[in-house]
Design a protein around this nucleic acid. Structure first.
Length: 627
DNA sequence: TTTCGGGTTATAT
DNA sequence: ATATAACCCGAAA
């Protein structure tokens, strides 16, 4: 029933809000994964973001910068794949494109030069070092002179020495460390608050654990399980929450009976409902009061009137800490119960709508952080919110079965992992997601997709903004060491001729491949997205407070697509080890010790590498005296 | 199930 | 044709 109301409401408005949560969460998640060197998952999350960004998203003021910085990290992540060239006209390595992007960001967001100085310098050094590592000494020297014109400086001397000696095996410049440094830089630049959805999920998990400890976990789990498949059905999904609530208020009195008689939660709920109904009408007031106290919603103060938290979100999180306080708690819990249990399970009253509304706002506030209160139309919101709240609650539940106390991010990550088995699959999935994508023949070339950073690398400002992606992947001439070999074969044919296809499809959700040819540097979004469908979507998105720049969208999309492996290899063929993989392996051995291949493999995200592969690679490295 | 070492294969030169 | 990195296979723990 609530759902119906929602449908009537402005779906777009709701979607924007929900998508903002999603984006907010995934931004943080991506950063976390990057930090943990789960680069595959990092790319997966970026994929998620790119897809979400195609939908209307209500952006916060800091979101654009975060998106850009994520793009930046994406390029950094692909930094060693020199084979990736985005603009044939002005071939630029991923790291160079990262530098250009950084400069662009600084300009666009008015970031003082000094704030980026260290990062910029490190980036420049790594650009040179990467060329050296790949044996492209000419290019390295060229970059060295470009970035470090002064013939003085320790770093310059070191790099110069390596170039002179044509020593590409130097370990002086760890790419892994460099990545982490870039991560630290990004974190300095933008503050990544703990997303609301993360906190909500975490608290929910905590609650479940508590409940499990006290009660029989099985019941709850079962319920959850049931709820998962049909999240739309309010009654089922929420039950867990109800239980929690009930436990707080009623558990003491009923616990014994429960354990003995095997009373079901449903029964308890009914009891509670009865109580609640008796006190109906009070709940609103109580809820507001109680809410004020909640730690989660510090921001609620701003919205005193609608402080009632939405049943799903607020209740799970808040209740645990409350245990039994005093009368207040009692009232509070009751009110909450009322919402959750009575409303959802039994029957939605008129009140429900208002309650939900409140909850939503709260959520927004939290999640939105700085975002200006955009509660446009209260009435419509209310209705909309119902579904929203439901979804939110429902989502976390199924996904993270009390699997553990691991952080939500972790859990999410694992989910991602499982879902994305192979790049191929993921890639294809992505493509699928981008419906318009015409049949790119390139599908086969899984590897190719990696054309992550292609886009604006060279384009600099213009391309950068340009919706068109010409990122064509070239085989890097001699840049890529050994990898190139395998890469070339598969890539060259496709990439050269139609490289745009693959990427374009992915890249331009807005514009299909065909439209690429015309470089539109338009600042106007519409232009960017030729496709009518996307146009409309984009417009819709635009309406939201913060409009997503074409650039941002593109960045995401583009990067996302290709990001994964530059070199993917055909399943049947030998796949050369990338520098990145090698570095991870080194780190892994350093951390876990030689021989613990399974640990290393599980800790780092080695894609399509078996324990034996790690072992063999290590053996090879030892033979080569790389270690 | 994971690790290990010898053997095989695919690829670059 | 050769060298060798990547991969495979069977044994052992």
């Amino acid at each position: 029933m609530a759902a119906k109301k929602c449908v009537n409401c402005d779906l777009v408005s709701v979607e924007r809000v929900v998508n903002r949560w999603i984006v907010d969460y995934n931004l943080s998640l991506a950063l976390e994964l990057f930090k943990k060197q789960k680069f595959e998952e990092f790319n997966e999350v970026r994929n998620v973001l790119s897809v979400v960004m195609k939908r209307p998203v209500e952006a916060t003021s800091d979101m654009p910068l975060k998106i850009r910085m994520l793009q930046f990290l994406g390029r950094i992540n692909e930094g060693e794949n020199l084979a990736l060239i985005y603009d044939p006209g002005t071939p630029v390595s991923p790291l160079e494109s990262a530098l250009l992007l950084l400069e662009n960001i600084m300009e666009a967001f008015g970031i003082p030069q000094q704030d980026c100085e260290d990062a910029s310098n490190s980036l420049k050094v790594m650009i040179v070092a990467t060329f050296i590592k790949n044996g492209n000494f000419d290019k390295a020297a060229q970059m060295l002179n470009k970035f470090f014109p002064k013939p003085v400086g320790l770093v310059r001397n070191i790099l110069e020495g390596l170039i002179r000696q044509k020593n590409k095996t130097s370990n002086s410049f760890s790419f892994q460390l460099f990545k982490q440094e870039m991560l630290a830089f990004v974190q300095r630049l933008c503050y990544f608050d703990v997303p609301f959805s993360y906190r909500a999920a975490q608290e929910l998990l905590t609650m479940r654990l508590e409940v499990d400890g006290i009660e029989e976990a099985e019941e709850i789990e079962q319920e959850e399980t049931n709820a998962t498949p049909s999240p739309q059905k309010n009654p089922v999904p929420f039950q867990p929450c109800k239980h929690l609530i009930i436990l707080r208020s009623r558990l003491e009195s009923v616990y014994n009976a429960l354990s003995e008689d095997e009373k079901t939660f449903a029964q308890l709920e009914q009891e509670v409902e009865t109580e609640i109904q008796d006190r109906d009408g009070l709940h609103l007031e109580h809820s507001s009061d109680s809410e004020t106290q909640d730690d989660l919603n510090a921001e609620r103060a701003d919205l005193p009137q609608r402080n009632v938290c939405s049943p799903m979100e607020a209740s799970p999180a808040e209740q645990p800490p409350q245990t039994d306080d005093g009368p207040q708690t009692r009232a509070r819990s009751l009110s909450k119960e009322h919402y959750t249990v009575a409303r959802l399970v039994t029957e939605p009253d008129s009140q429900s709508s208002s309650q939900y509304t409140t909850g939503l706002e709260e959520l927004e506030t939290e999640a939105g952080t700085e975002k200006p209160p955009q509660v446009p139309d209260g009435s419509s919101e209310k209705e909309l919110q119902c579904p929203v709240s439901d979804d939110e609650t429902a989502i976390p539940t199924p996904k993270r079965p009390r699997r553990s106390k691991k952080t939500a991010a972790r859990a999410a990550a694992s989910v991602l992992e499982s879902s994305s088995d192979s790049e191929d699959n993921s890639v294809e999935k992505r493509k699928e997601m981008q419906e318009e994508t015409p049949p790119c023949q390139s599908n086969k070339s899984k590897s190719r997709n990696s054309g992550t950073s292609k886009r604006h690398s060279s384009g600099l400002q213009d391309d950068y903004i340009t919706p068109v992606k010409r990122p064509v992947r070239q085989l890097s001439t001699g840049s890529s060491k050994k990898k190139s070999s395998s890469t070339r074969r598969s890539i060259s044919p496709e990439s050269v001729g139609e490289s745009p296809i693959t990427e374009s499809c992915l890249d331009s959700p807005s514009g299909p491949c065909h439209q690429h040819p015309v470089p539109q540097k338009s600042s106007t979004p519409e232009q960017a997205f030729p496709n009518t469908k996307w146009k409309s979507l984009f417009r819709t998105a635009k309406e939201s407070k913060v409009t997503w720049n074409n650039e941002e969208m593109e960045f995401l999309l583009k990067d996302t697509k290709g990001s994964n492996e530059s070199i993917k290899s055909n399943s049947g063929h030998k796949r050369k080890w990338t520098d990145q993989e090698t570095e991870m392996l080194k780190e892994g051995v350093k951390t876990f010790g030689e021989g613990n291949w399974s640990k290393i493999k599980s800790y780092y995200d080695f894609k399509d590498r078996t324990n034996v592969n790690l072992k063999d690679r290590w053996r090879t490295m030892k033979n080569l005296k790389m270690v």
